[in-house]
Design a protein around this nucleic acid. Structure first.
Length: 215
DNA sequence: AAGAGGATGAACT
DNA sequence: GTTCATCCTCTTG
């Protein structure tokens, strides 16, 4: 009967306004993504992220502070959603970070299903729960009901249907691994930056060749 | 106005 | 390992 809010804390603009997007990408691991939509509510634990640092990151859509109709949202203050269509099929979900004018964002690449797996299965048109349900940015977005209609949504508003929250009174120690980001080979030397982060040993991460505990 | 290519994933061989 | 679905954005002319 404890007040949930003591432990379930929606991340706010202050949290997302930090200048170090690489650090924020790591801090998002172990946080919970919640989508409370008309079809139902779903919750997933974030297990994989990538940092994109606008001004000096060739892999970032806002590289060199490039501001276009699409990337404009990345220049907003941290805490707003940046969702775009990739390959004409996949909706990729990012959280913008940093102060207004700093075009940084974190791509959420995978979640561990926590609440309402049946809804996720239905959205993915799958029958059995495996890592394919929500491993990879396109799959994750589909499972959670995220699409480009939520671009520019304020995730930090108290009445927002989508948000990210922490669920621990004290942050537990999380074993984090890192490596190069996926699918950014066009970005020259920037492609080698180890700005992809995931929770070590998590079977819900994308791009794993040999899986020990197949979910 | 036209064309290339992409922060992917699924279904193939 | 390879192919390809599918459409929006950006660049070029």
């Amino acid at each position: 009967m404890d007040n949930q809010n003591i432990f379930f804390k929606r991340l706010d603009n202050t949290w997302f306004s930090g200048e170090d997007v690489v650090a924020i990408a790591q801090s998002l691991l172990g946080k919970y993504l919640v989508t409370d939509l008309p079809e139902g509510r779903a919750v997933g634990k974030i297990v994989e992220t990538e940092a994109y640092r606008g001004p000096d990151d060739r892999a970032c859509h806002a590289w060199n502070n490039r501001c276009t109709p699409r990337t404009r949202v990345m220049f907003e203050a941290g805490g707003i959603a940046y969702v775009y269509l990739c390959y004409g099929i996949h909706h990729l979900f990012n959280v913008v970070t940093g102060p207004k004018g700093m075009p940084h964002a974190v791509l959420i690449r995978a979640i561990e299903p926590i609440e309402n797996t049946p809804l996720m299965l239905q959205r993915r048109k799958m029958e059995k729960t495996t890592y394919r349900l929500s491993a990879g940015p396109g799959a994750m977005s589909q499972a959670m009901g995220l699409n480009t209609s939520f671009n520019e949504l304020q995730l930090t508003s108290l009445d927002s249907p989508i948000w990210i929250e922490s669920r621990e009174a004290e942050l537990p120690e999380i074993a984090i691994e890192s490596g190069p980001r996926i699918g950014v080979s066009y970005a020259g030397t920037c492609a080698m930056r180890p700005w992809r982060f995931w929770i070590k040993e998590s079977p819900w991460v994308s791009g794993i060749k040999a899986r020990k505990n197949k979910p």
